[in-house]
Write a protein that binds this DNA or RNA. Structure first.
Lengths: 270, 270
DNA sequence: CGTCGCTTTGATCATGATCAAGGGATGTGG
DNA sequence: CCACATCCCTTGATCATGATCAAAGCGACG
């Protein structure tokens, strides 16, 4: 299997800039994030950076590599709660509990920067708006998680798989790691089945059917979505949950914002 | 059906105090929250306070009543993403998207206070620690959501139902709305089935089996958990995800905290 | 050359969906 | 006060989605 290339020099600033865009950083906030990213650490493939049941007080910025947040059940089954891509943050949730509720593991070699929780609360006093932006990133993460509930709760296996592949396409494209219709997934089908709560054999069969129907092509870990329209229709995929407002716009005081065209505020009561 | 009693005078301060505890508010922060709660509004049963696809820029503090966050699918099926109880916050996520991703609806008469998003960002400058605490509450909400993924993804119908009822017991007890083994659920089985991604008929059957096995009793919307131990074992219910650290402790600088007994930091790399 | 990790496929089983019908409650209007 | 409707619970019969079990193929790699 080809994994992502290992840490290259300069990756820190590439992703510091990417964070900058996602979080709408101002010129004085940017160097702070760049500082955090500068002291990054490599993570080898299949390594846990957070372990369920152990204490964690660090927030990790994923600069490179793909990670999963997961739980191992009593019977040995695994449920993957989220897929974490470069530009995402990890480990924040466990900071607010005695010990971590999930483990977080790399699927590939990767690179992460560390912000201790204390550092975040420190920022809260010195750079409150920046700290707020980081907290907002947690909210975006939660939105993906909520959507995952809907995928797993109310969709058929075929729909789940289609949705999963489309979500990955959209997220990878947003960070420049996919082209218009295709991307490399450096992981195997068991990730898909554990993310979607399905059995391996069945995921395989349904993937096969999707390719036979001409919607996909998968070969050697490269996924080509041949008909995005049809697949989106099949999966009932709405990308809105992957597109939060630009933070600069959300955080500006409301008198600076024009209301969205044609959409007033919701009438509240009565 | 008996719904919760309507807004009583004084409910604002009762729950302002409850928030105070949950968020470890300091004496100067408390009046701010109390102010927000003072201007609360009643919500009638079965009313949407956030509507999917509509713009929302308000954070709602649930002072009274039970709410659900849900999505209606193409085929008319509903997936409930979260149950919101007094003391929870609602609508924050939709503030960060052009329009709401989910609707939020009351199951009972209720009472909510409103904090405009601008107000939260205003707090960020004037009372950064308080704003941080509110953001932390979003993280707790996300933890429940993540657990929901695991429930729906990898548990049998019987286990899901058991888990759901235990989660409710635990959360209601935490806010004083349940006694040791029982509580009233002012809603019907279709809420359970839409929360867990099951069919109504099957939920009914499995509920029946659980009562026949002597684990539960349900009559007229009152749930009595007769054997918490056995039910927890059956559901693989771990309440940890409902017990975040007291924020006062999390937010204190680390040199004030003693490490958790017997649990060092996680060894990071290698 | 043998092993390991991953994919593929077949056969069978069962969990849970769907369809259908009936049975209290409670409420409402005539 | 009764007729009727509505909401929710209950139960049976049947169906199908997806799990489980089993086995084989196939690179890659040591």
């Amino acid at each position: 299997m080809k994994s992502l290339p290992s840490a290259q020099p300069g990756a820190e600033t590439v992703f510091a800039r990417r964070f900058a865009t996602q979080l709408s950083l101002t010129p004085d906030e940017l160097p702070i994030i760049r500082d955090i990213c500068a002291s990054s650490r490599p993570v080898r493939r299949r390594q846990d950076i957070v372990i369920e049941g152990k204490r964690n007080r660090n927030i990790f910025f994923v600069l490179e590599g793909i990670f999963v947040r997961y739980r191992i059940m009593r019977d040995g089954q695994r449920q993957i709660v989220s897929i974490l891509l470069p530009g995402d943050m990890a480990g924040a949730r466990s900071c607010f509990f005695e010990t971590a509720l999930y483990s977080i593991r790399s699927l590939t070699n990767g690179l992460v920067a560390t912000l201790p929780l204390d550092g975040l609360f420190g920022l809260l006093d010195r750079q409150p708006q920046l700290a707020g932006k980081i907290f907002c990133a947690f909210v975006h993460d939660a939105a993906i998680c909520a959507e995952h509930v809907v995928v797993v709760g109310r969709r058929s296996a075929r729909e789940r798989i289609a949705h999963f592949l489309l979500e990955l396409l959209t997220r990878l494209r947003a960070i420049g790691l996919a082209d218009d219709h295709s991307y490399r997934i450096p992981f195997s089908q068991d990730i898909i089945c554990d993310a979607l709560g399905l059995s391996l054999a069945y995921v395989n069969r349904e993937l096969r059917r999707l390719t036979q129907d001409g919607l996909l092509e998968i070969s050697d870990h490269k996924v080509v979505i041949k008909d995005i329209e049809a697949l989106s229709e099949l999966a009932d995929f709405e990308r809105r949950y992957l597109q939060p407002m630009p933070l600069g716009e959300v955080m500006a005081p409301s008198f600076l914002r024009r209301p969205a065209p044609g959409q007033g505020e919701v009438a509240f009561i009565r």
